[in-house]
Design a protein around this nucleic acid. Structure first.
Lengths: 219, 219
DNA sequence: CGCGCAATTGACTCATATCAAGATACGTGG
DNA sequence: CCACGTATCTTGATATGAGTCAATTGCGCG
């Protein structure tokens, strides 16, 4: 099924009768606080499943960011398949584990990282999903607006914008239009992204363990 | 197995060969950034399993908070059981879903709530795990110190302390020793906890903590 | 009973939010 | 194809919640 940008797929609390897979485009998954504060749980890009986890009601809402093509699978069918093929359950479990890891990395970020560190983490996460071009400098596409990024990272659009400018001034990345950029020194970004643990997915070859002492202070 | 307070069970990155179940006491699960900033993923209390999800290496470290009694299950055995009993896979999947929901609620909190709102959310979460005494005012036990709470909520000990004092001044709760308190007006707290959705553990008909009924992994 | 660590409280700083303009990109219609 | 209008992004000035530094208090324990 094809959808125009910014159209609602379902809301938090709706009957969870279908789960989805993205074929192309980007979908934002989010929750709201009653006063309107929004938190974007994550972005689903091509190839990703979402809404396969909820018991009964969706635990978040989903909206398209860009033009999107998705497939819808009835939940009942999925459940039946899982019962029929035990191996599938194993697969789902693995998926769940990955998502759990991602959710926890995200929480760590929200709880303990500065604005610039969050941006670095986010950009590296996106870069990791882009086709590897072998060269160090990956260039990435930001399908979502600054406001979406802000709500994902627990910041404001202004802060996101400022930090991006800041990273640009420090030559950690360059822009090529507002929504396309190139990571110039991924290593530096990675250092910024943390003082820390392996985030979303990549394994850095071996231990690059630095000393724990210096407060972060984004330069 | 019995452990003294503040003893290390395993570290982030260790071979994940065993998973655990808490019989009594409280365990803190945390991750560190290289510069030492700590984020407490969660607290495992009596009845809870932890470290059952990781692929290969632990994705967080675990330390006892209070005196703790735990059971250790070899991972290999667990995996074998899962293969043998497809139904068990289903159980684990359900557990994973619950944890995912909790992790996301936590992320929402870290990203978009104020210090006081976080405290309120946290206290309500604890209250929900306490035996229901029917009356509105539940009284809860805080096994962990302020520093632990702070690292769980993405705050500092000072802020935690200040917010608790603040809640006390507003008569939302009373203290009975530093680590025991009583929620006087849960409704008000809940309102504070959000402007928002039902957080960590909404309904759960019988406070059944998924595990309760699970056959011991022991063999 | 007094020692010591944890918690509270206070004064001040700093990062990020908020408020407010500009600047840039983009779609639309002339 | 260009001019305009609008939405998004950037930048600046200021406000503020939470962090930091620094005592002080009080509980818990030997």
């Amino acid at each position: 099924v094809r959808h125009r940008p910014d159209s609602l797929l379902f809301q938090e609390g709706d009957e969870a009768e279908t789960c989805y897979r993205v074929l192309s485009g980007t979908v934002r998954l989010y929750r709201l606080l009653q006063d309107g504060r929004r938190h974007i749980v994550g972005f689903a890009v091509a190839g990703r499943f979402f809404a396969w986890d909820d018991e009964d009601r969706y635990s978040f809402a989903a909206e398209t960011v860009s033009e999107v093509v998705i497939v819808r699978y009835p939940r009942a069918q999925l459940d039946a398949l899982v019962v029929a093929q035990p191996e599938l359950a194993w697969r789902l479990l693995a998926l769940a584990r990955k998502e759990l890891g991602a959710a926890r990395a995200h929480a760590l970020m929200l709880g303990r990282k500065t604005a610039t560190e969050r941006l670095a983490t986010f950009l590296l996460g996106l870069a990791a999903e882009e086709p590897r071009d072998g060269t160090g400098a990956s260039h990435i596409e930001l399908p979502m607006g600054r406001a979406d990024i802000a709500d994902h990272l627990g910041l404001t659009t202004e802060t996101v914008s400022r930090c991006l400018s800041h990273l640009r001034r420090d030559d950690l990345l360059t822009f090529d239009g507002q929504r396309r950029c190139r990571l110039v020194r991924p290593a530096a970004l990675r250092a910024l992204a943390e003082g820390g643990p392996t985030v979303c997915q990549e394994r850095m070859p071996a231990g690059a363990v630095a000393d724990r002492a210096a407060p972060p202070f984004a330069a």
